[in-house]
């Protein structure tokens, strides 16, 4: 019996594959390859289409534009890996940003204290999402749909709908918009901080037991529980860490926008989800890599930025993003169909 199995397995391993099958199986092993290829194609097209695209100056701006969505998409990735979804990303970030700016405006509170309170508020907001998901057992979609409205309303009520401009804020809150130039290429501290967030979270996801549990809980929560994984604690942790990342994104956003504005990035929710999905993370949980999300965020912003450089209208850019999402998910489905 056993010899039959080994021979059959060996035969199976030696089987002939068509080039398409081989590509499919490679993409299955490295799901971030296809978004990387897409990014390359986008770069190449814009390089050919417009001379101003691939310049040091443009690249610096592209990175700064990508930074906010890329940071939010880290939290979104963690939550989507657990088969959840977070519609309150933008709302938490804006609430946190308005609170830190209001507290610190015109020297009202030391910058560091205002910053910490703002970030802690975002952590608390994420924790609240997590409690509602794990203790009240509500679906993440419903929970975050509700908290999206709640946090948005609180942010508007608290700020009175008014923006707070950079000159009225302490230097610490504006700091992440500063940076240094290498030739025409300008790198801000915000962009560097996003890079650090990616490195840390990617390490945790791939190298620690906690990261493994995130995948396990997302793939099959009941099996994870039976295996001894503390599923609820992991879920609560994921929502809380996501909140922390949104709080840091709020800080980066003040520096980038040069102001704290209640309606800063209206489509932050959908853009962060788009980045995660294009990056190859499954909305059903348990599958995906953080590096994919980074590539996904870059693709979305490259498309936006490149098209705007070519003088294409905002509406057409939105349309292009929509088509991109559908193509990305279709390719993803095809890759998943690979056998062994």
């Amino acid at each position: 019996m056993s010899t039959d199995v080994t021979t059959a397995a060996a035969e199976f391993a030696r089987r002939q594959q068509s080039p398409v099958q081989r590509l499919q199986s490679q993409l299955h092993k490295r799901p971030w390859l296809s978004p990387l290829f897409l990014l390359f194609v986008a770069f190449l097209s814009f390089f050919i289409a417009t001379p101003t695209f691939l310049t040091a100056n443009s690249m610096g701006i592209l990175l700064q534009q990508t930074a906010i969505i890329a940071a939010l998409a880290v939290g979104q990735t963690l939550i989507i890996l657990t088969a959840g979804i977070d519609l309150s990303v933008g709302a938490i970030m804006v609430l946190s940003m308005m609170v830190m700016a209001s507290l610190a405006q015109d020297g009202g509170m030391p910058g560091i204290l205002a910053l910490l309170i703002g970030i802690l508020l975002a952590v608390g907001a994420g924790f609240l999402n997590g409690i509602l998901v794990t203790r009240i057992n509500l679906p993440p979609f419903i929970v975050t749909l509700g908290t999206l409205s709640i946090f948005t309303a609180i942010a508007l009520l608290y700020s009175g709908g008014a923006s707070i401009q950079a000159p009225r804020l302490p230097r610490l809150l504006n700091f992440l918009g500063e940076g240094f130039g290498i030739g025409g290429f300008r790198l801000t501290w915000g962009v560097i901080l996003v890079g650090v967030i990616y490195a840390v979270v990617a390490f945790v996801l791939s190298q620690t037991a906690w990261g493994r549990y995130v995948y396990a809980v997302g793939d099959d929560p009941e099996s994870a529980r039976l295996s001894g994984v503390p599923s609820k604690r992991i879920l609560l942790g994921v929502y809380t860490v996501a909140g922390l990342i949104y709080g840091i994104a709020a800080w980066i956003l003040i520096g980038r926008a040069g102001a704290a504005t209640p309606n800063a990035i209206p489509d932050a929710n959908l853009q962060s989800i788009t980045a995660v999905v294009i990056g190859g993370t499954s909305l059903f949980g348990g599958r995906g890599r953080l590096v994919g999300t980074l590539i996904g965020a870059l693709i979305v912003q490259t498309l936006q930025f490149g098209l705007s450089q070519m003088g294409v209208d905002q509406q057409w850019r939105v349309l292009a993003t929509g088509i991109l999402v559908i193509i990305a998910v279709a390719v993803d489905q095809w890759i998943r169909k690979v056998k062994a």
Partner: peptide, 23 residues
Amino acid sequence: YQQLAVIPALDIASNLYLAREDR
């Protein structure tokens, strides 16, 4: 268990060591 309690997305070694990982 009848429902197996294995995690499809993880590899065999990760499943064997699930919730008792070595550092």
